[in-house]
Design a protein around this nucleic acid. Sequence first.
DNA 1: CGCCAAAACGAACGTTCGTGCTATATTGCG
DNA 2: CGCAATATAGCACGAACGTTCGTTTTGGCG
Lengths: 243, 243
Amino acid sequence: MTIPGKSSGARAERASAGARRAHGERTRQAILEAAVDIASAEGLEGLTIGRLAAELSMSKSGLFAHFGSKEELQLATVEAARDIFVREVVLPAFEAPKGVARLWCLCDVWLEHVRREVFRGGCFFAAAAAEFDGRPGAVRDRVAAIMKEWLAVLGRSVAEAQAEGQLDSSAEPAQLAFELNALEMGANWAYQLHGDRQAFARARAAMVERLRRLATEDGLPLLPPLKQSKARPSRAARGKART
Amino acid sequence: MTIPGKSSGARAERASAGARRAHGERTRQAILEAAVDIASAEGLEGLTIGRLAAELSMSKSGLFAHFGSKEELQLATVEAARDIFVREVVLPAFEAPKGVARLWCLCDVWLEHVRREVFRGGCFFAAAAAEFDGRPGAVRDRVAAIMKEWLAVLGRSVAEAQAEGQLDSSAEPAQLAFELNALEMGANWAYQLHGDRQAFARARAAMVERLRRLATEDGLPLLPPLKQSKARPSRAARGKART
DNA sequence: CGCCAAAACGAACGTTCGTGCTATATTGCG
DNA sequence: CGCAATATAGCACGAACGTTCGTTTTGGCG
């Protein structure tokens, strides 16, 4: 399992001076918390050191000393966002048993994390990817790697569902992962740009439709029922679902 | 048809002084051409006046006078990008007869315009939307309106295909438009971030699969054939397709 | 030709950016 | 207590940003 793991290494260097670092590490964490919030809404470039320092009522230089460069701050912010994503999306979904249940759970909880605004600006990585896909550098590489990880998690879950005999094995895992990911990002886009909450229902409907068609007899009961397609809005398909 | 229309109004003001403005309008157009190129790759905020002036070997102030403010420049750039999009995507697709043929053509030529890099940074509006979805203002509103236009064009094409009896009328046009758009943006994302050319084939496959399942007997022949799914890469499904 | 408006220019404004240097609190350890 | 390391603050820098201003170049028209 590559995704569910801690990444922000708490380096200890000297064992004796460990306790001294406690306070510094705590403020560093506080900085990153605010940084993720700002960056998710205004972009990793809009995340400015002065702005961040003002938000936390501390001096630019004091804050700056924690990172040494803007790029390092951005990288740390990306890493912090990944930690949050793992905690809020991946791990919860991994409580479901492997197979179709977990696959669906990954999709569902992903959409939920956007709707709940775990990140103020929707999907942190969709925003970061769009911002940095044009400029080479460490930040872009890291963001790309993380999104590849996510796609791999989706793909592996598809493969596991197939291995469990819950999903037709004719489907290519990477292809299905691509489609599910695209629907997720489509919902994120519609919600961020248009404030369209209906987009979540649309994405869910498309995912369920796609998955149900590939599900075997074993897998079908693990998926939510189809809405009865036509006009009637069909209230509360999954209990909490709300347009 | 709301989309296929000129938007950049060539105002004439005084008939006598018309000729004088000719040159000014030409450089304005040249500025916007470069502006679209830069903005599509580095964002509408990364589109800096100094950078743009340097690109065109002219002074900041001389360039600035054409627009009066940065926001006005951004708006003009968005409008210019829309003109290009209409010319390169919408109008070509509208040469196909209305119905499934045109709907597919819209999807196909959209993907092609990303692959051909009509805009250096892929889909101009996907980038602009991601950049501005968090900050209110005229630019955000305009970008949102244009993307709504595009979604409406897709939706209307679906409805027309249904009216022609080429597509099952049980599908909700807006839902299908959402899905097709999501797949487009997913392909754009994968190509921009990972340089993954295969993404185009993946998006195309998902679209064809989705559309074929909804197509009636009349509509089916208007769609490209399915790749023979399994392992074998099945060379050149559409002649030009290449991983 | 001279006139005059449009177009382009060059220099400067006030901010804000990221980033250095230096000094001052804070605090566990000897 | 005092030492040494760490954390934060203060200040200044050079560059780039959007913007304004006054001036100079350009080119169609009387």
